[in-house]
Design a protein around this nucleic acid. Structure first.
Length: 305
DNA sequence: TAGGCCATCTGGTCCT
DNA sequence: AGGACCAGATGGCCTA
């Protein structure tokens, strides 16, 4: 049974940036989950009603049993006897129990995978780029989430405001072409401007600001992945993105944050940019933290004197 | 049409 | 014994 999830899972535009993981399920999301849960119950019911005679694996199992029987009947000395406990004869009752057990296991496995997919869907909604039309694949969602976490923790660690370029570079490390384009489109950026290979074209002040982001300790080489675009940063693939107005892209990130949030694109149907606001808050907190540490340190110094 | 992505089934292994 | 987890196989759908 194949179930298609073609329905658009759209993040409501009203969802604020403050709805972070624990509260990230809006009423809309809850409704979606309820709907899915109902679908799954139907699915499970169908599995229960399914004719056990139709289970493919059982046919194979029956074939195995036949083989065993043949072996016994032949009594061929040339073939080594199978060691270990002898297989019990598959009676009709045993067969029936096996079928039921197998169907229950299948239903459990389906539910387990659905749970995993729900978690991934929640993750999609909290990573920077959430598009109505272009849903991130599972693997890309995980990669983007990993980059995002790293980028945010780097901001907290350094207490410095990164520029947009280096932030997006960090986000796009190891992502595929479509995802990189999505991130670029999401930020209304020209992907050319943050390509690692072209970093020498970035103004000097940008490169300085990017320093802490350049060395991505968790960047991976994705060994063993079959083919590009996975695991590569081949820049050629990024050029397919449609041209935008790139004027603000080279401006320092935090100078434009608030104005960007009130720009028309903020409310458009295209991917939202809530993380810009989040970034603003995080960096503000980091600055306050830094100031507080400096203040306390100074005070302790005075006390010691 | 090939390749990517996905859902599902399945058998194996480990744990309770 | 039964459930959770995992990886391989398979087939369907979609897109470049």
């Amino acid at each position: 049974m194949t179930k298609s999830y073609t329905e658009d899972s759209i993040m409501p535009e009203s969802q604020s940036a403050s709805t972070w993981p624990d509260e990230c399920l809006s009423s809309h999301d809850e409704h979606e989950l309820e709907k899915k849960s109902e679908e799954r119950e139907e699915c499970d019911a169908m599995a229960k009603d399914a004719d056990p005679e139709d289970v493919d694996g059982l046919n194979r199992l029956e074939e195995d049993e036949d083989d065993d029987d043949d072996e016994e009947e032949d009594g061929d000395d040339q073939k080594p006897k199978r060691r270990g406990p002898k297989k019990k004869k598959m009676t009709k009752a045993r067969l029936q129990r096996f079928k039921i057990r197998r169907m229950k296991a299948n239903a459990r496995e389906r539910n387990r995978m659905h749970g995993l997919n729900d978690a991934l869907e929640s993750l999609r909604k909290v990573v920077p780029c959430y598009s109505k039309t272009q849903k991130l694949s599972k693997i890309e969602t995980l990669r983007l989430a990993k980059n995002y976490i790293w980028a945010l923790s780097e901001i907290l660690r350094s207490g410095k405001s990164p520029d947009l370029m280096s932030f997006v570079q960090a986000l796009c490390k190891g992502l595929s072409q479509p995802t990189t384009n999505l991130v670029a489109g999401c930020l209304q950026l020209n992907p050319r401007t943050f390509l690692p290979e072209q970093s020498q074209e970035i103004p000097a002040h940008m490169q300085t600001a990017s320093a802490s982001f350049a060395a991505h300790p968790y960047s991976y080489q994705t060994p063993g992945l079959p083919s590009p675009p996975y695991g590569t940063m081949d820049s050629s693939h990024i050029f397919h993105v449609k041209p935008h107005s790139y004027g603000s892209a080279l401006e320092p990130f935090f100078e434009s944050v608030l104005t960007d949030c009130t720009s028309p694109s903020w409310n458009s149907g295209t991917p939202t940019i809530p993380f810009r606001l989040i970034m603003y808050y995080i960096c503000s907190i980091a600055r306050l933290y830094d100031m507080e540490v400096t203040r306390v340190a100074g005070k302790e110094g005075c006390d010691q004197i």
